[in-house]
Nucleic acid binder design. Structure first.
Lengths: 348, 348
DNA sequence: CTGAAAGCGCTTACAG
DNA sequence: CTGAAAGCGCTTACAG
């Protein structure tokens, strides 16, 4: 027979005790006799008691909500990130309020400010390119590259790139074209550095920056990949799956067989990379782990815990922790050195 | 010289007036002399006053936060939706808390309940397939199909499908394969109905359900589209861009030229459809408009306004409002009837 | 036009 | 171990 939203005083009333005692029992902090505490919990449950976030927030100054600020919600990687963060936050007892830095850099500041005004306890920021998140007057955790200063969690983009580079080298590729978006991206720089290291000095690797290409040739202009194949390039390493799929379809449309004549690889394991033909070898970030660490790092700051130390709850993340990426080997990784060589001649 | 978070009483203090007056002046509701009101606003601004959401929420019972529940955050359409909702909510003065119905249907209920417990003023739900959002004890707006009962906003999927069907018919296609995911999806049913209507009775159209195909042949099994082209199919209408890209790459990998030998079209205008070669003709939902209407409809319910009526703020959304889709004509729409016929013969 | 007061639901010292 | 009281910041009748 539970009526409208029961509150602490309703529970106190039905049991003939004080609200203070109810509060103490429910929070488990105050010292309440185990017997009474149990009765209180039972009543709370049967009454369908849900603590008022507003009341608690007003009193404690905490809202139990984290902000998530992304460079651009429209980014195809956003679903993976948001899902992981939502999950991690949720199991840490936090809600997630979204913010969008879309467009200009000031938008990022605006988004952060709006979230702070909304009373979030802390913010997880994936910074816009070329942006550094300094002191924003609110606990913050950043997801970027391991080199990023501050309370940062990151994928090991460099290590991932290295793995991919090694993979391509072992397949026998000797000329690789790396397809990047913007040289301003820390993430992409790391991936390129890793790729180059993994490929080694014997493999020739160049970078084609799509942003630059778009400026000179127009956004929709073909990348001229077929000519590069003719020129001896046997592998195209996209710095994201989006780029990789673009390359793949351009090659296919030009009649170049993938992976027989040219390999195409990507990054991020977006859903697309697995449904296309041939599917893409790609590197997946461990978003669940990154999100978990980011939330943990943020919660540690909120709680005022010293960072970078082991606590009862596990290791509190210190500056620049990096999470390994996972190579998703798919068919498209393709050509053994020999096959590739053979077919390449035919096709070109 | 502004110190820690100023509150109403800080403003009242500096001006030697009461907090009630400050509150009234700032909210614009109470009758305060214009002159004093102005001074109050000035002081508030110079002090950097930001109202406490917790205090206000506790008093008014409103948090100024909307919940957004999605069937699966990992869905590639999520970015578009989330961005539009965030934008619309933000300009209506609301924050957006995300919820994820990922996985089972009960998750949807769980997500909704969690959001309610967090004190959201209302929830925007994009229901899982085969789910109906009934009375959830909290204002709600649904984004689904126009036929969905309740406080619903929707894209005109049927109309969009019809437009696409007409487009394909006018290009001269006589056999079309529709690529769907699941027959349980209302959205997809609408799109198919529209497609069929637009194609007319002279065009032969069949549906391949990918979910079914995956069950019988395995998730990664090729769809055998090349054989269908040989069989006379000249157009593949994906019910989503994801499906369309899958079809496109499968065709290309089989050596079938798109759009010369077969057309591929999609739905949703995901970013991928514009970067691939050839780019995809697709139908874009007017997410901004849908989001605006959904937020407006939800706010109307929250405010207790009668629905389906014209108010000072514009038309309050009634049951089942539908927003037109926009055809994005791209190169891939391709073959005129004649060209298509010609090439088809060659390729098959 | 302005102000004093009550109260939203909670937690936290402080008494008892 | 339990309770009375204060107060977080706000808004809203109600007086004046």
């Amino acid at each position: 027979m539970k009526s409208e939203k029961p509150n602490l005083s309703a529970i106190a009333h039905t049991l003939g005790v004080s609200v203070a005692t109810v509060s103490n029992a429910l929070s488990g902090k105050g010292r309440v006799s185990t017997e009474l505490a149990e009765r209180i919990r039972d009543t709370a449950r049967s009454l369908g008691y849900v603590p008022s976030v507003a009341g608690r927030a007003l009193r404690t100054g905490r809202t139990g909500v984290l902000g998530l600020v992304l460079p651009d919600i429209a980014n195809p990687l956003f679903p993976q990130i948001a899902q992981a963060i939502e999950q991690a936050a949720s199991s840490a007892g936090y809600g997630v309020l979204i913010g969008d830095s879309r467009g200009a850099v000031e938008q990022q500041t605006q988004a952060i400010l709006r979230l702070i005004d909304r009373g979030v306890d802390g913010i997880i920021v994936i910074p816009r390119r070329g942006t550094r998140i300094s002191d924003i007057g609110c606990p913050v955790a950043v997801i970027d590259t391991p080199a990023t200063p501050g309370n940062t969690v990151a994928s090991d983009h460099w290590g991932g790139g290295e793995e991919m580079g090694r993979h391509l080298r072992e397949l026998g590729h000797e000329r690789v074209l790396i397809l990047g978006g913007s040289p301003l991206s820390n993430v992409q720089s790391d991936r390129i550095g890793g790729l180059r290291a993994g490929l080694g000095s014997s493999v020739r690797a160049e970078v084609l920056w799509l942003e630059q290409h778009a400026e000179t040739h127009g956004a929709d202009a073909p990348l001229g990949l077929a000519a590069m194949v003719k020129d001896g390039v046997t592998a195209f390493a996209g710095l994201s799956d989006l780029t990789a799929v673009r390359a793949l379809t351009e090659l296919q449309a030009a009649g170049i067989a993938v992976p027989e004549a040219a390999s195409v690889t990507g990054f991020d394991d977006l859903i697309w990379s697995s449904v296309i033909t041939p599917s893409l070898t790609t590197l997946r970030m461990d978003m669940a782990e990154i999100a978990r660490q980011a939330v943990q790092a943020l919660v540690a700051v909120i709680a005022g815990l010293p960072q970078g130390r082991v606590t009862a709850l596990g290791t509190v993340v210190a500056d620049s922790n990096s999470v390994p990426m996972m190579l998703m080997l798919r068919q498209s990784s393709g050509p053994r050195a020999v096959d590739n060589r053979n077919v390449e001649g035919d096709e070109a």
